[in-house]
């Protein structure tokens, strides 16, 4: 798949933002006043910034309101509704904490639940794709959820929780790669089933439909950079998981925490780039590119 910067930024930052909103929502002793303001600013900058970034890959972004209508069938529509509900609930909750110093706890719980729902629905947009076997696994939502919860705990400063969740996210990520590497083969979709010609003999793409490229090839048959995938996986886990965990085990200060957060974000961005770049769409079979 084409690793579009807009969707990489969207999944990374909205995951972190909604992860932070989850921890803020369930915090029994939430921050108030200026401290709350800064926390909410960071969470909203990431969550809303990520969502806005996702609109850059739309062909007709001005019609985005229509995307809230098909929640019965579409995960993208459900995601939109979950995101807006979360942002409204947590916005009101934050308002109480920042300006009135009161915790309207029910709104916090609703927001926390909504934050989880948002990350889950985002992950299901990818996990539902039977056409992309690497994504079509239960591990995909597990990976998105564990990264969001770990990143959120890290931003919130829940050190013990962050260490545990980062470790879990790391394990889930590694499993996602190991299982994902076998997914296309295990899906049973081959050039033989794609063309229906397999019972005659071995099928080879002889001539493509056109000499140039097309939308399908640009969007679904991205192969650039795969050769670096092993290195990028190591970089992703090192920056995203190992370095933040080591830093959190040190006596923590604000600067060290900032480095841990920066490292985590860089690592997640690398892993998310791979999530898209390594994903093989079955349509590539028609072009002999799998």
């Amino acid at each position: 798949m084409h690793p579009a910067p807009s969707v990489i930024i969207f999944t990374t930052f909205s995951g972190l933002g909604f992860g932070l909103l989850f921890w803020l929502g369930i915090d029994p002793t939430p921050p108030t006043g200026w401290v709350a303001f800064v926390f909410w600013l960071i969470a909203y900058a990431m969550a809303v910034g990520g969502l806005l970034s996702s609109t850059f890959h739309l062909g007709r972004p001005e019609r985005f309101l229509k995307a809230f209508s098909q929640w019965r069938s579409s995960w993208l529509s459900r995601e939109g509704i979950a995101a807006v509900t979360t942002l409204v609930a947590m916005g009101l909750y934050g308002l109480g904490l920042v300006f009135f110093g009161t915790a309207w706890q029910h709104l916090g719980w609703l927001g926390a639940l909504g934050a989880l729902a948002t990350v889950f629905t985002t992950s299901m947009i990818y996990a539902q794709m039977k056409t992309i076997p690497r994504w079509n696994m239960n591990l995909t939502p597990a990976m998105f959820m564990s990264y969001a919860l770990a990143g959120g705990a890290l931003l919130k400063g829940n050190i013990t929780m962050a260490i545990v969740l980062l470790a879990i996210a790391g394990v889930v990520q590694v499993f996602t790669w190991v299982m994902g590497d076998k997914a296309f083969e295990n899906s049973g979709t081959t050039m033989a089933t794609a063309t229906g010609l397999g019972n005659i003999g071995s099928v080879r793409a002889f001539e493509p439909p056109h000499t140039g490229t097309n939308y399908l090839m640009r969007e679904f048959i991205h192969v650039v950079g795969r050769k670096h995938s092993q290195k990028l996986r190591i970089i992703g886990v090192a920056l995203g998981i190992i370095i933040p965990v080591v830093l959190l085990l040190l006596p923590i200060g604000h600067w060290i925490a900032l480095i841990a957060v920066a490292s985590h974000i860089a690592g997640v961005l690398a892993s998310r780039w791979l999530f898209f770049a390594e994903a093989e769409h079955v349509v590539g079979l028609y072009y002999g590119k799998r």
Binding site: M1, H57, L58, G59, R60, P61, R63, F64, K66, A67, S74, L76, I125, Q128, M129, K130, T131, I132, T189, A194, N214, Y215, L216, E219, F220, H281, V282, V283, Y286
Partner: peptide, 25 residues
């Protein structure tokens, strides 16, 4: 009603849908 998100083209195993680059639908 199309916002040009491209998700339907992702979901199609046959490559039957193409996002028009001029119209964005």
């Amino acid at each position: 009603d199309c916002i040009g998100c491209g998700l339907c083209a992702w979901a199609c195993p046959y490559g039957a849908r193409e996002l028009d680059q001029a119209e964005g639908v």
